[in-house]
Nucleic acid binder design. Sequence first.
DNA 1: CGCAAAATTGAGGGCCCTCAACCGTAGTGG
DNA 2: CCACTACGGTTGAGGGCCCTCAATTTTGCG
Lengths: 226, 226
Amino acid sequence: MQSALLTKANSSALPLFTLEAPQFRKSTDAPAVGAVHSYAKDGEIFAEGDRAAFVYKVLSGVVRTSKLLSDGRRQIDAFHLAGDIFGIEAGEEYRFCAEAVGDCVVIAYRRSNLGALMGSDSQLAQEMTMGMMRSLVRAQNHMLLLGRKSALEKIATFLLDMAERTSGGDALDLPMSRSDIADHLGLTIETVSRSFTQLERQGMIELPSARHVVLSNRAALEHLNA
Amino acid sequence: MQSALLTKANSSALPLFTLEAPQFRKSTDAPAVGAVHSYAKDGEIFAEGDRAAFVYKVLSGVVRTSKLLSDGRRQIDAFHLAGDIFGIEAGEEYRFCAEAVGDCVVIAYRRSNLGALMGSDSQLAQEMTMGMMRSLVRAQNHMLLLGRKSALEKIATFLLDMAERTSGGDALDLPMSRSDIADHLGLTIETVSRSFTQLERQGMIELPSARHVVLSNRAALEHLNA
DNA sequence: CGCAAAATTGAGGGCCCTCAACCGTAGTGG
DNA sequence: CCACTACGGTTGAGGGCCCTCAATTTTGCG
């Protein structure tokens, strides 16, 4: 199968923000709080069905978690940015696969250690619980999008959400491919592409390059958000 | 059966339900852990935006929780059967509305009391956490359905899931209307109806009446489940 | 520079939606 | 007892949104 790419050399390029990984480790490193791992683009962090031994937090980069149907259709349930928790499971196995969208660094907390950690470190306990809460809120909002929104509305919602989660401003660079966006929004790459150009033609966004988006008319986009 | 993560998260004070301070009082209203309410068909239990003062458990009947777009499009995120928890919120307001699908009875736990209740009654604490966990799992599976499954596949998945959650056998009577099913699966009532008759013609189900379904070919249905 | 992957664009088709008519059941009142 | 109505559900015809297939352009990287 796929081997976890534990490339210690966090590659080189990609001005991914965050050099604060050392800070994370330092604070509570003594009792082996978590192991830091790096993954190259498309590297597999865990697969659907793997034994769920770890809970992860993104330190830098972006992670996607997805489910597959038997014929290959894919649904990306979420993109996880720096600071986000993923891989929380109630059962023994992961019900998703997790992969690096681009080069990324994560910290893995062994589940069997979490009990003690959460007893001693209420900060981490709260983070875990809040992470699960946020996942639920995001999932519930996303169901409305998947079930009831048009392609244009999906893209508008996605762009506004990504902008809010990253810079917060109007300039936005997307870390993921059109294919990833499509599988997140329940569309095809062609429809994603067409929707982008349509939004551009309508003056709602600008596309200096495929992965750079400027939200030039937030009001109109938010109107599409319904 | 229970993961370390969950059990440990319970024992330490969950920040989830304690926006108001956890209380010491637990004897004054010992029998009144929650208030029982009855609702007629389509009765509103709470509305989107209401102050989230209670967490609910279904005692009998079925409850739907749904979100609306400004133009009236609706997405039912879940049906809650007897024993299910609903209305768990991290923030101050409900992000859904909750209505009775048919006549139903629920028990309402005041959120400000939950801290004490969960201290004294670990059974309830575990129920709350597991309720949230189950909601998350269901939501994540439902995203795959909404984003990537065909109408026939959606109906097949829905029927198998409902059968498992109720009788567990092959006979099934649906407590909700076609409209509710449609808004749960991201379809229209006409497509729901057509899919039912198509499954019937293909011998996978029988429809003695609109709301009584017999799963006469589980294997085929599960194949559609992909 | 040259290749492969990603993204865009176009043409055509299919799945599901929209609009509409019809059917069956249940409730109501003359 | 039987209109009459209301409502939920089914069925049909047609259209639109998005998918599929395909070609082309652009981007990224050696």
